[in-house]
Write a protein that binds this DNA or RNA. Structure first.
Length: 260
DNA sequence: ATGGTGGCCCGGCCA
């Protein structure tokens, strides 16, 4: 089973590149974030033509998450528990090939003194509660998406640059740690313990070409899946303009293979 | 390294 996650930064703008990448790389399941579409505008037929079922949770201009799967989309659900999250469109889940898959878009905290930062920490705490209430960590569960957190200092280009900034603060890393403590493994870091491999680069100032990025897009697998994970890679090429001329997102794809 | 670019959709907001 090939499982991938990609913050596409507008599926409306990115659909040609996403389809091009799917045809070339054959994911069984692709989790997408920041589709920026309403459910009505989601291009279900385009995925269907490639053999994928899909589920989407979005209300338009911001956020929006989706899953495309060619191994089934069963029992789809949207959001966390609260009414506030129902308007955030930051989580969609479905059972795909026997795995409970979640496409997750964690709020951006913006600044440490921002109310958005408080909301981010609260959202992460409720994500842990969501796991506690629904699943057994001994079952196959995957959380895939843009966590807007670099798990360690090896996941940013220069830790000194990020002192006092969001994405790296101790409370954010602790909140992520609490989610991992439920029984999930950041499988990419297990295959690449030295870090310094990134999934996001600011569009501005040529940061991609300078190597100035962060690893904030994660695939978290419960123990039965993590034990059978054979590969975890970041496809840096998908951050470039494609051979067909399609423009990139500011994030690229994380691809995980599981012997499942 | 507080500028810069790109997405939303046309005036700023968001990342």
């Amino acid at each position: 089973m090939r499982l991938a996650t990609w913050n596409v930064n507008s599926l409306g703008a990115r659909l040609p590149l996403v389809l091009e990448w799917m045809e070339a790389n054959g994911p069984d399941i692709l989790c997408m974030q920041e589709t920026k579409l309403t459910d009505d505008a989601f291009p279900r037929a385009a995925f269907s033509q490639l053999g994928y079922e899909s589920t989407h949770f979005g209300d338009g201009r911001w956020n929006g998450v989706a899953i495309a799967s060619r191994v089934g989309i069963d029992a789809p659900t949207c959001g966390l528990d609260s009414e506030a999250d129902r308007h955030g469109c930051r989580l969609v889940a479905a059972t795909c090939g026997g795995v409970r898959v979640h496409s997750v878009y964690v709020p951006n905290g913006r600044r440490l003194d921002s109310e958005h930062y408080t909301f981010k920490l609260d959202w992460l705490a409720r994500l842990r509660e969501y796991l506690d209430e629904r699943y057994d960590p001994a079952s196959p569960v995957a959380l895939c998406g843009d966590f807007n957190i670099a798990p360690t200092d090896a996941d940013v280009w220069d830790p000194a640059h990020f002192v006092g900034m969001t994405h790296v603060s101790e409370p954010e890393r602790a909140a992520l740690g609490h989610i991992l403590d439920w029984g999930l493994v950041d499988v990419f870091s297990r295959f690449h313990p030295d870090g310094h491999i990134f999934s996001w680069w600011d569009y501005r100032a040529g940061n991609f070409h300078k190597g100035l990025g962060m690893r904030i897009d994660l695939v978290l697998l419960s123990a039965p899946l993590a034990a059978k994970c054979t590969s975890a890679e970041i496809d840096r090429d998908a951050r470039k303009k494609s051979p067909a001329g399609n423009k990139p997102s500011d994030h690229t794809v994380v691809v995980v293979d599981v012997d499942w």
